[in-house]
Design a protein around this nucleic acid. Sequence first.
DNA 1: TCGCAAGGGGTTGTATGCAATCCACAGACG
DNA 2: CGTCTGTGGATTGCATACAACCCCTTGCGA
Lengths: 209, 209
Amino acid sequence: MSVVDDLRNLILNGRYAPGARLGEVELAETLGVSRTPVREALRRLQAEGLVEVAANRGARVAQFPAGDLETVFELRARIEGLAARQAAAVATAEDADLLHETAVTLREHAGRRDLDAVYRLNADFHRSLVRLGGSAVLAQSLSALVHSPVLLRTYGSFDAEAMRRSVDHHVEIAAAVRAGDPDWAEVVMRAHLFSARASLLGPRRRDGG
Amino acid sequence: MSVVDDLRNLILNGRYAPGARLGEVELAETLGVSRTPVREALRRLQAEGLVEVAANRGARVAQFPAGDLETVFELRARIEGLAARQAAAVATAEDADLLHETAVTLREHAGRRDLDAVYRLNADFHRSLVRLGGSAVLAQSLSALVHSPVLLRTYGSFDAEAMRRSVDHHVEIAAAVRAGDPDWAEVVMRAHLFSARASLLGPRRRDGG
DNA sequence: TCGCAAGGGGTTGTATGCAATCCACAGACG
DNA sequence: CGTCTGTGGATTGCATACAACCCCTTGCGA
């Protein structure tokens, strides 16, 4: 429907890889509109951090330097930790049950290595949690981080144990929300993201020595 | 120079108050360009969270519901806490000296209640710290929060003691960075923001009772 | 007097044309 | 042979024209 959503999906689905050139005329033809809405969509996605545009030189899909990936997870741990905390503080039993449902379904699909469903349910879970947290600024601060092209298909690099940890974290977070325990919810969420970071980036060796 | 920067400054300087209508033709005339660059600037500022646009109904300056202000400060404490931590971990002595300079100058202007200079130096300080932290994603996550129109002229609502605390926090953060102590830098930054929140929103009474 | 529907003004959404800028390649000069 | 410069093609940036949409007003009817 909306050009900006279409373009965002194209990037997020890997149709345009990080670093790929985004020519205005090519996108306009692909999306079946003129250059004007394409340009506006590119400007929005630029502000979202999904694309980088150089003056007079066009747009490319943004790519994080590897060092920034650490920061992305550190930020997500802090921001989504807050989201989990607030969700646990305000969620009703029905809210928590819905979260639990999603987490359990996610676990089932993970058992069958159905990665597409896992990715979708994972996004659902995190989005629901943020919505429960109830703050628009929270959602916005996160969107730029979780939509990062580098984070796509992260589950592909998880081994069996990491996958098990990840899906169990979701269930545990739902339990913490159900219990109305903000501290519990926050630390599990932080563990969830640090665990994912370790699977993606490998072990963090100590500095000294 | 750039239309998006001009427009952002207009909003941030209070020329357009939160909730004010942003007509495309009016802005185009004000800025001396056509509607096209104005529209692109509005889309960018929309993604930054500074303006809200409704389909076919135009753009307005964004305004947070009061409840979200708590979340904004909670988020800033977490994100800028990370920025301070990373800055302390990597900053050189020269970097720390520059921060100290800014903090001391800020304190002098605050003593004379020169609010314009205070606001500018404060922004400089926080920006420098984030730049020291060295991560583009960090800078981007913050920009949407600190640019929030609601946070303008916050110092106007500070009493003498709160002002003193705020400026001293800057000096202390510089000291922590100079000492290369990430823990110290982070907690002072968190205190800095919680103190500001208290001045803006009043005391947070306990729930129970 | 109140409700509703049709019309008009104004604003946004989109398309297209033109100017400015950038990159690549070729040719000349040292 | 290497480097610099000029020219051509392509792409972006901007302006303008037209179409679509929304809201407000106005007139009619109950």
